[in-house]
C-alpha cells in the first residue's frame, strides 16, 4: 500500500478550506496535511465540521473556498483520480441490507472496476480478516452493529485504497466492537496505509492517531501529536484528596497540606473545597510522590487519595476552546471551566 505513482508529496493537503451551507459556515479556513503512512485524527464535537471535511476529501461535497488535494489531485479538478485513491467509510454503515456480506463487497469491487474473480478473491480476503467469514452468505440485515461497521469498513478497503478515510468509525458501537475496530485500524496503519480518521472520542484518537487536529466550529483549534498537545498544558497535575472539609470549614489540616504542596508546586496551589481536593502542577511528575507522601506523613496528614495525572486531550480541548465544544450542549451550570477540572469533554463518556 505505497508508491502512489510519481507523486511524492503528502497524501492529503488542505489549505484554507471553506464550506458554507446557507449562512452557516461549516468550515472556516481549515488547513491540514496528512503525511503518507500516517494516521491523522480529526477530533471535535458534533457540528464541528469533521464530516464536511471528510466529504470534501471523498468528492461528495464541493468546497466553496480553499483547496483540497489527495495525492496531488485537486478534488474539484480531478475528482475521478481522487475517487480512485480514497476508500471512504461513512458515519453510518452504508451496507446494503438485502445483499449478503459477500455480495456487498463484490458489488463494490466490481463497481470500482474489478473483474468478478478479482472482486471475489478480495472480498473473501477481507471477510476472513474482519471475522465475517461465517456471516458472508447471510444478508446484512441480520448483522449486529459491529458486524455492519466491519463490513462497511471492508467495503471501503475493497480496492486497497492508498488513503483510507474513516468518518466516526466507532460512534454508536459497544465497547467491545469498538476495540475490535481499533485493532483493525491499527493493523491498517502497521501495513503502511494512510488513514484519516474523525472521532468524537478522545481515547480513540489518543490511541490510534500519530497526529491530532482539534476542530471546533469549523476551525482548527490546535494540531500536533497527542503528546505535544498534552504537553502544551504544562506540567502534570498532583491532586490530593482530603475529603469534605466538614461544617467547621477547612481548618488546620487543609492549611498544612497546602503548605506541603507549595514546596513542590510549579505555580499556585489550588484549593477546591467542593471537591475536597488540593492540587498543583508538579514539574517532576510522579517522581515527587514519595517525597510528598513523606512530608504529609511528617505533618500528620493522611490523605484519602493522592494522584498525579497528565493532561488529557479533554483538558487540551477545554483549554483551547474554553469549553467542551462550542456547539455541544452547554456545560452544567456551576461547573468550573478550566484545565484540570474533571469535565467530560465531547464524547468523553466511558
Amino acid at each position: 500500500m505505497n508508491g502512489r505513482g510519481g507523486h511524492t508529496g503528502p497524501a492529503v493537503r488542505v489549505a484554507g478550506l471553506v464550506k458554507r451551507y446557507g449562512r452557516t459556515e461549516a468550515l472556516r479556513g481549515v488547513d491540514l496535511v496528512v503525511e503518507r503512512g500516517s494516521v491523522v485524527g480529526v477530533l471535535g464535537p458534533n457540528g464541528a465540521g469533521k464530516t464536511t471535511l471528510v466529504r470534501i476529501l471523498a468528492t461528495l461535497v464541493r468546497p466553496d473556498g480553499g483547496t483540497a488535494e489527495v495525492f496531488g489531485y485537486d478534488v474539484l479538478r480531478h475528482p475521478g483520480e481522487v475517487r480512485r485513491r480514497v476508500g471512504l467509510t461513512g458515519q453510518f454503515a452504508a451496507v446494503d441490507e438485502l445483499l449478503t456480506g459477500e455480495e456487498n463487497l463484490v458489488l463494490i469491487g466490481r463497481l470500482a472496476g474489478m473483474d468478478r474473480g478479482r472482486a471475489r478473491r478480495r472480498a473473501d480476503e477481507l471477510l476472513n480478516r474482519f471475522g465475517l467469514r461465517d456471516a458472508a452468505g447471510r444478508t446484512a440485515q441480520g448483522y449486529s452493529g459491529g458486524m455492519r461497521r466491519r463490513l462497511d469498513l471492508a467495503a471501503g478497503l475493497m480496492t486497497a485504497p492508498p488513503l483510507v478515510v474513516l468518518d466516526e468509525p466507532t460512534t454508536g458501537l459497544d465497547p467491545r466492537s469498538r476495540v475490535g475496530l481499533w485493532e483493525v485500524i491499527e493493523e491498517l496503519a502497521a501495513e503502511g496505509s494512510t488513514v484519516l480518521l474523525t472521532s468524537q472520542y478522545l481515547e480513540e484518537v489518543d490511541r490510534l492517531a500519530h497526529h491530532v487536529m482539534l476542530v471546533d466550529a469549523g476551525e482548527v483549534a490546535a494540531s500536533g501529536s497527542p503528546e505535544e498537545l498534552k504537553d502544551r498544558l504544562g506540567a502534570p497535575l498532583l491532586v490530593l484528596t482530603l475529603g469534605p472539609p466538614g461544617a467547621a470549614g477547612p481548618g488546620a489540616r487543609w492549611d498544612a497540606a497546602a503548605r506541603v504542596l507549595s514546596r513542590y508546586a510549579k505555580g499556585a496551589v489550588d484549593v477546591s473545597l467542593p471537591l475536597g481536593e488540593i492540587s498543583c502542577r508538579v514539574a517532576a511528575g510522579a517522581r515527587v510522590m514519595p517525597a510528598v507522601a513523606r512530608d504529609l506523613d511528617d505533618a500528620g496528614i493522611t490523605p484519602d487519595d493522592m494522584a498525579v495525572r497528565r493532561a488529557t486531550l479533554d483538558d487540551v480541548f477545554l483549554a483551547l476552546t474554553g469549553q467542551p465544544g462550542s456547539r455541544a450542549p452547554a456545560a452544567p451550570a456551576g461547573t468550573p471551566a478550566g484545565p484540570g477540572t474533571a469535565l467530560v469533554g465531547p464524547g468523553g463518556e466511558r
Partner: peptide, 18 residues
Amino acid sequence: MSTVTATAPPFLPGTETG
C-alpha cells in the same frame, strides 16, 4: 503540486470511462 505524473500503479481501480 509540481510532481504529479500520469502513470498510475497497476492495482488502482480502472480509469475506463465512457
